[in-house]
Design a protein around this nucleic acid. Structure first.
Lengths: 214, 214
DNA sequence: GTCTATAGGGTGATAGAC
DNA sequence: GTCTATCACCCTATAGAC
């Protein structure tokens, strides 16, 4: 009886079950607030197995962290590789891609921002294609923004503002959602999702207004 | 020798030194990642004294948290009490006030967002004027936004978007600053501060563009 | 591979001297 | 009020049986 959880987990290996549970708890609560015991319980296995598969809490966290970093920055890389399109289309693509990603992984942004502040963010790894690309990506992205600024009428605006606004408009609602959906808050979960979909079309317009492109 | 720290602490009571150290560490690292031993060391006193003055880590955290909540939302209350001004002036005041606050307390936003997600945010306390006011404030703020939307040309825009954009444009740069000022990042601390000052004038303009006020 | 039992070390809190 | 010493518990990690 009560096999609902076991059923959907049946095709997952023990290792995958542990990693899945770790991802869920680490991403939602962070490193220090997460107990290995809780991960084991969430995975439906014994505590000893966690160390059998992953050696230590720290190593397990680093795996989860890296996956989350990939998930978060991977969308940017993807955008970068779809390079030679007009800026406006690229903007639409990026915004849509990220809002979909964050609707699926609402805890992701706060997790990333926390590891950035805590200094846990993975250091540059010459062997890791993504981590190496993040630097290139930054330059590429700035280049695109600068080109767009040249075409617009806000030529003296520092590209920092554009990048920050774009990221903030996409990401902030997700990290502030507990405030918006608080006990007496007016916004329900369903309503929140509807508004996020709306923003897919709104954010590109707002950004174009920022760089005075139209 | 090496009394630089003692000198500036000399006029603080032991209780205040402990609370100050706790505020610094809790605000920067969160509850779970902070050791009471580290707070004691930071305050330059013994671990036992911490419990002598504040009974427990949890109680000390709650005091710090409440102070931070006051600091963060107090600026909004202040803005609310300076009520009967034109919306545009109010916008200028609010943005300027918050950017100054966050330049002084850059860790504050991430702390607030984390306690909101973790459920540690103080529950409604009928005796606490601020906590009671946060609810009123929300309604008041929405009212103001709605009035402004009526005057603008974006009448069908959900006020949620305006509130979220305003908060995001102010707050997000501060929580994303580790990303912008990363090792190979182009932005220095000084440059970051200059850009934030710039935003005091830019954000109101962008918000007016969002509600199509001009 | 998976479990139970337990070692080993850290952490919050307190007892008791001064 | 402030300290040292220490307790009691919790948490990670491992030993060892199956």
């Amino acid at each position: 009886m009560n096999k609902t959880k076991k059923i959907e987990d049946k095709d997952l290996s023990t290792e995958e079950k542990i990693k899945g549970a770790a991802k869920k708890l680490f991403t939602h609560n962070g490193y220090s607030a997460t107990r290995t015991r809780d991960i084991a319980k969430e995975a439906g296995i014994n505590l000893a197995l966690l160390n059998y598969y992953f050696r230590s809490k720290k190593k397990l966290f680093e795996i989860v962290m890296k996956e989350n970093v990939y998930l978060f920055f991977g969308a940017l890389i993807e955008n970068m590789n779809n390079n030679p399109r007009p800026f406006e289309k690229q903007l639409d693509f990026l915004v849509g891609r990220y809002i979909d990603l964050l609707l699926e992984n609402p805890d992701l942004p706060l997790f990333i921002l926390n590891i950035l502040q805590s200094g846990k963010f993975p250091q540059e790894d010459k062997d890791d294609p993504l981590l190496r690309n993040i630097q290139h990506m930054r330059g590429y992205f700035l280049k695109n923004i600068q080109d767009a600024l040249e075409k617009g009428k806000a030529k003296n605006l520092h590209p920092f503002h554009v990048v920050t606004n774009l990221m903030g408009l996409i990401i902030f609602p997700f990290i502030a959602s507990p405030m918006m959906m608080a006990r007496s808050g007016n916004i329900s979960r369903k309503e929140f999702e509807r508004l996020m979909i709306e923003r897919k079309e709104l954010i590109p317009e707002w950004i174009k207004a920022v760089i005075k492109l139209k």
